[in-house]
Amino acid sequence: MGGQMGPEESFDLFKQCAVEVLQVEPSKIVPEARFADDLDADSLDLVELVMALEEKFGIDVAEAELEGVQTVGQAYELVASKL
């Protein structure tokens, strides 16, 4: 499904997932937002978010790929690279 999606549309989908899983205001989901400091999300929150993203975008993200992912922008780039 992801192949036909524009960047704006795919970021919107990403944002939907993040809002639902992390229960934060949509306005907080910006590329520079840090999961731990700005979104009160720990490593298990991130795992749950990635599960939702995998399902929404029809992609697979290996556990190792999450290492070093600290911001919304980094997570989105990881997803976008697989679309």
């Binding site: 298990l44 795992v47 749950e48 599960m51 995998e54 399902e55």
Partner: peptide
């Protein structure tokens, strides 16, 4: 229904 990869980390 959805597989082991979707079981909650919680």
């Amino acid at each position: 229904e959805r597989g082991a990869g979707r079981v909650s980390p919680f």
